[in-house]
Write a protein that binds this DNA or RNA. Sequence first.
DNA 1: GCAGTTACGCTACGACTCGTAGCGAAACCG
DNA 2: CGGTTTCGCTACGAGTCGTAGCGTAACTGC
Lengths: 210, 210
Amino acid sequence: MPPTPPARSRRRTGRPRSAEADRAILDATRAALVELGFAGLTLGDVAARAGVAKTTLYRRWAGKNELVVDTLAALFEEQLELPDRGSLHADIEGVVLRFAGLLDRPETRTALMAVVAEAGHDEALRDRIREAIVDRQKHLVLLGRARAQRRGEMPGDDGTADPARDDLIFDVVAGTVLHRVMVSSEPVDREWADRLARLLVGGLTANPGC
Amino acid sequence: MPPTPPARSRRRTGRPRSAEADRAILDATRAALVELGFAGLTLGDVAARAGVAKTTLYRRWAGKNELVVDTLAALFEEQLELPDRGSLHADIEGVVLRFAGLLDRPETRTALMAVVAEAGHDEALRDRIREAIVDRQKHLVLLGRARAQRRGEMPGDDGTADPARDDLIFDVVAGTVLHRVMVSSEPVDREWADRLARLLVGGLTANPGC
DNA sequence: GCAGTTACGCTACGACTCGTAGCGAAACCG
DNA sequence: CGGTTTCGCTACGAGTCGTAGCGTAACTGC
């Protein structure tokens, strides 16, 4: 995940950018988020932690928002997956617990909501979040839904794709967990995940048409 | 909604605080949020817009977060209610559309997620959000659920309260809408609200035990 | 090798925001 | 009227911002 694409087209001449610096900066950002939170994070501080000049940081990222989005994307990259647990219910329960675990980290807590807030009036940032984070999560929904259809767990389903339903499932799963953890400030345990999964599976089978 | 309670106990002596200044400050904050977003908002700017000295602002609010939370609370106070539409499905659809309308305002979009992000590492702020915003929304869920039970729309329900289920419904409704609007950046129209309501009602009736 | 190109660390800069302090005037109470 | 609190105003040191300029380091193509 290159932080900022090398300006225009590929550059084959000149001193190459230090990949080590990239890692150091992202790690430093993560640590700074944990200690200071998003609002308290300063690029000067990150540069100092990373052992890098502040100018180096500005050469790669446009500002705090972009840096934090890339840091978040790396975190999601590490954590999100959807192992096949044999049933739609179990798959949902699994991804819910995984996502909740991600939201338990202090760096995710403070950073995710903050960049989403900033994206509310920054189209470019919104696109960056979409491709770096959202699309990756949504892919898990498509995967889980396809598995369920293959297993025959969706009665009355003709097997064709229904993007609107996929979007709804995505928003229900991710949104409910996000709200539970970030807004209601209550824990997500196996029992709660089971309850949410049952509610969702029940609703899907009760509405075969959609 | 007094911004900051007058220090300790009531003061009956001295010059009283200007209620007009309160209104001017909250209005100015709202306008500044629309134009600049949460990150770009500065208290000096708010004071200038409100025609108030910066020191006056600091006498009442501890900082940006607290000011914005109170501004948000006033917005929610204006907008949230739950008229009886005759059925659980219609009630859910109604509150979903209302909440989505609130999230369409630029000041809500940028401010709500930002203060939630800050609350991730600020206990006092979290409590303030809870009582000023969250509890008020949750009350609507309790009201809607009680109505549905009175109508006999919850088969297999013994009529007793199940706080865990209420919390789940709350997180599903508020979280799904929040995620749809803020993260997925897609509109909430009547059709989508209907679909979510059907999913939820279906899930609740399919799981009588909970 | 050498010239060309790009990234690096470092320093310094003006502009801005922060939160606080000190002042005299204004507004309310007994 | 004296006591008390808030008001607007000004000023302040501290911290951050994002950029510019410099000399050096690293890599490519001739």
